[in-house]
């Protein structure tokens, strides 16, 4: 498979462990996006400049309307910025999309009810033309990654909400893009399931070494998961603060009670409050 060899070649496995070779994967320069609506223009993103390095786990946090989802959608070429520049893997976002540079996880699992879990995960593989044997292999791999081995034959309605969302993550991982974009993937789940999935997501990130962009409006989630937290504020959507996390890469759930964690969470909260101050 042509695709596969190229992504494999681009992906330097050692990069993350070697701090000397920091490689920028996503770069935004003075990004602007104005939607034309019936109520007049809406300034969704204003002057966004940000660099995301390979292997980063970047959270975007902010109140509704701050443009965090819009920015993620710009990276995915699902929206087109009206100003500034944005590059993904050194390409324009649309070229990156055509090169299947990223997997995207939506807030709803969005599994096809007429396909089994395994067949759902095969969907992108079928579209991208992987061989049947390769499809099987990858389905088993990613099912194992999200701890759903043995559930391939089940249909979505037979799974809980959390399991469905894991399956949708598996689907986004199946074609091994090295960027994973997640738009409030756990927003609709209850806190306990969410904790569990956060823990799993960190493990998965450590194992796969992907670059992850993660939209959330939960402060603990953002602090627990991220190496970099981007605090955004609304009207117009802009970056208020970028916090580089000082937490170690290894993060058990109880790290959330540590003073370091609480300090970062505090800074995020302060940022959110300040961003909200002007309305």
């Amino acid at each position: 498979m042509n695709m596969e060899t190229t992504t494999q070649a681009i992906r330097p496995e050692a990069a993350a462990s070697d701090p000397a070779s920091v490689e920028t994967v996503i770069e935004a320069r003075n990004l602007d996006l104005t939607f034309q609506t019936n109520d007049g223009p809406v300034h969704a993103l204003k002057d966004i400049s940000l660099e995301i390095n390979r292997g980063d786990f970047v959270s975007f946090i902010g109140p509704s309307g701050c443009g965090k989802t819009t920015f993620l959608r710009c990276i995915a070429a699902l929206e087109t910025p009206t100003g500034g520049s944005l590059s993904v893997n050194g390409m324009t976002p649309d070229e990156a999309r055509r090169n299947r540079a990223y997997g995207y996880v939506f807030q709803a699992a969005g599994l096809y009810p007429w396909r089994s879990i395994a067949k759902n995960i095969k969907l992108p593989l079928e579209i991208m033309g992987y061989s049947r044997a390769e499809q099987e292999k990858r389905v088993n791999q990613v099912l194992e990654l999200v701890e759903l081995s043995g559930f391939g034959g089940k249909f979505p309605w037979q799974l809980s909400g959390g399991m469905q969302q894991r399956a949708s993550i598996a689907r986004a991982l199946a074609f091994d893009a090295d960027i994973l974009l997640m738009d409030e993937p756990f927003g609709a789940l209850d806190e306990i399931v969410r904790d569990h999935l956060n823990e799993q997501l960190l493990k998965l990130w450590a194992r796969t070494n992907k670059t992850i962009g993660f939209v959330t409006h939960s402060i603990p989630e953002a602090v627990y998961l991220s190496t970099k937290i981007v605090v955004m504020s609304p009207r117009p959507g802009r970056i208020h603060d970028v916090i580089d996390s000082t937490l170690p890469k290894e993060r058990p759930l109880d790290i959330r009670d540590s003073p370091e964690f609480i300090e970062i969470a505090h800074r995020v909260r302060e940022g959110l409050r300040a961003g909200h101050g002007d309305d």
Binding site: A76, G103, L123, I127
Partner: peptide, 20 residues
């Protein structure tokens, strides 16, 4: 969302029709 998902896979119209 379903249509966006297919777009992220760079699926063509044909694939969108038969698969979704």
């Amino acid at each position: 969302m379903q249509l966006d998902l297919l777009k992220t896979y760079n699926a063509n119209t044909n694939q969108g029709f038969w698969k979704l």
